[in-house]
Write a protein that binds this DNA or RNA. Structure first.
Length: 291
DNA sequence: CGCTAGACCTGACGGC
DNA sequence: TGCCGTCAGGTCTAGC
């Protein structure tokens, strides 16, 4: 569910409500929520107990809490929200949620931090931090468009060199991170490019425009607290964003394109739905084949 | 190497 | 009312 803007809203909540506090206990309700931590949930809980949260960081859709001892960073507690994960800051006496999977308590008492995840595609892992402060386990995730180390010219070159569809490339978290199905469709609509166009057939300025639109639409969504269609996506206080009102393509099947009035179409691509304007975003003429 | 399909889960919704 | 199929914001991997 959550893409970069929604995850950034959560990161800011963690920065406001969790950074600066010392963990006194952690519990995980099962192995699945800690499946990325090979030694298991008990080891994970044991190893973070007593450490202080000194930073809340994010790359793309991945979050991590920098955990320190005596002021020195020792670990990164990686969190991914998957499709339905929520990190909630709540009083300890709030009733347990149906899909509560983790609980963290702190030396200064209330509030505690909870991880609630209906589908448990999300979860936690503990890892060391590399020299640049990024946990080793997410080294394969490329910088997102809001990071200082993001090199758009390099991303454009890499995409231009690929014969893959442009939508596949901007969804590829190893090329550029943070973009998911919603913002991919919105960026492509804004750039008037059909997602199945082979990347190599696009000019570098066009590829750059797609990426710039992706960054802009995510920045606009962030201002509005992210995109939420229902109660599944919320910030750490349980509140929803309202960028869904500003979507032009995603989920808009049959509604008139805001530019030309043509009904937005829905197609299957990469085993998921894609939304686009048939008039503004013409399909590639031929599906190229090797040979 | 790149791509596809499938797996991992639960719940909401529409049709019958 | 229930049953069944479909769909959902993500990621990972087995197998071509």
């Amino acid at each position: 569910m959550p893409e970069l803007p929604e995850v950034e809203v959560v990161r800011r909540g963690l920065a406001d409500h969790v950074v600066g506090r010392r963990i006194t206990a952690a519990s995980f309700t099962g192995a699945r929520v800690a499946r990325r931590h090979i030694p298991g949930p008990v080891d994970l809980a044991h190893r973070i107990t007593g450490l202080e949260v000194t930073q809340a960081r994010r790359r793309g859709k991945y979050l991590w809490l920098v955990l320190s001892e005596d002021g020195h960073p020792v670990h990164g507690l990686i969190a991914h929200l998957g499709m339905s994960g929520q990190l909630l800051v709540e009083p300890a006496d709030a009733p347990d949620e149906k899909h509560l999977h983790a609980r963290f308590t702190f030396a200064d008492g209330d509030p505690e931090l909870r991880f609630v995840d209906q589908r448990t595609f999300g979860g936690f892992a503990l890892d060391d931090l590399a020299d640049d402060g990024v946990p080793h386990q997410i080294r394969h995730i490329a910088p997102d468009p809001f990071e200082p180390v993001y090199d758009q010219a390099a991303v454009v070159r890499r995409i231009k060199a690929s014969d893959s569809a442009i939508k596949r490339m901007i969804l590829h978290q190893g090329v550029v991170s943070g973009i998911g199905n919603i913002y991919a469709d919105e960026a492509l609509w804004r750039a008037r490019v059909h997602g199945e166009r082979p990347s190599s057939s696009l000019t570098k300025p066009t590829i750059a425009r797609v990426l710039e639109h992706a960054r802009e639409v995510m920045a606009a969504a962030l201002v509005q607290g992210g995109t939420s269609f229902d109660a599944l996506y919320v910030n750490v206080n349980g509140a929803s964003g309202y960028f869904d009102r500003s979507l032009h393509a995603y989920g808009q099947e049959g509604r008139p394109c805001a530019r030309c009035g043509t009904p937005i179409r829905r197609e299957q691509f990469m085993n998921r739905s894609s939304f686009s304007c048939p008039q503004c975003q013409t399909r590639p003429r031929v599906r190229r084949r090797a040979g």
